[in-house]
Nucleic acid binder design. Structure first.
Lengths: 156, 156
DNA sequence: ACTATTTAGACAACGTTGTTGTCCATCTTA
DNA sequence: TAAGATGGACAACAACGTTGTCTAAATAGT
């Protein structure tokens, strides 16, 4: 299309593919009782994981400051996806844990992603989809959790 | 790794692949005389294209408000990548055009993307890379220029 | 031709999310 | 026990998005 130079297409298609999956995820999450969740939140909850974390730790995982992580936690707490509890071992720390509602969103996200993957497999064939993921795995860093994308794009 | 559910990997790898390419692009652009350019700017300049545009038109292309497009143009103007000229046909309109410096960045971006693509081809094989792009083209919308990604991610 | 509507752009106010700097309480270490 | 490191909160600021309002200019309708 408008980009005559073929090199432009590779990054754009990667981004578009990501967008399509995320948009479909959130459309479906909205139908399944999670209308307020935003793309970023899924990443953050994935980073929080099942065993909980702290603001500082979360900031490190996401590649943002502890203050930014704290604000995101504030938001997720406000809409009911996480809760803060004190750490009896270390009174300074506040453990951030997913609420049952948050766990529900995370589980559903996994299921929806799974069904989206199956849709891609039905369209492309399991073999080619495997090849695609395998090739991407080969060209990308091994630690999937460099999720500092919010902010990485967009800031001057 | 941490995501036990395989469906999570597909979107993350797509995003990671995009990130790797964009990060390498900007590292190289920095070396080639464009240290101040940001990921978003490449997209915007690509959207502006060779024949110029206006703030309203640019906003529509990028999927943001005309005010947001105007602010981005302000920034690009300040750092010397675009210039505004009046439209003699319509005195209300201000045509936004790439400066020679901006054109240089766009041309270099194309060349760098091209060499990155070649690196991927060397690693994966031309055939598999073609298959990857072909498959992504199949699963993504045809209009590559829905570049409203700045803001789409990240906002509550 | 005159008026009414639409359109382009500028300006202001505001919300969100990131940053850095500062401060205090608490844990760790020497 | 004293000194340093760490977790978290608070404030100030910057970047970038939004909506609303306003003016000037082009276009449409009568």
């Amino acid at each position: 299309m408008s980009s005559a130079i073929p090199g432009f297409e590779l990054p754009l298609r990667l981004l578009l593919g990501f967008r399509v999956l995320i948009d479909e995820l959130h459309a479906e999450l909205g139908r399944q009782g999670h209308p307020d969740i935003r793309p970023m939140h899924g990443f953050v909850m994935q980073a929080i994981g099942g065993h909980g974390t702290t603001a500082v730790e979360l900031g490190r995982t996401l590649g943002v400051s502890k203050q930014a992580a704290g604000k995101t936690i504030d938001t997720l707490e406000r809409i009911g996806y996480v809760e803060r509890t004190v750490d009896p071992q270390d009174t300074r720390r506040k453990l951030v844990r997913l609420t049952p509602y948050g766990m529900d969103a995370l589980v559903r996200s996994g299921q929806i992603f799974e069904s989206l993957r199956q849709r891609w497999a039905a369209e492309l064939g399991e073999e080619r989809l495997d090849a695609l993921v395998t090739d991407l795995r080969r060209m990308t860093p091994p630690d999937m959790f460099r999720l500092d994308t919010p902010g990485w794009f967009g800031t001057l």
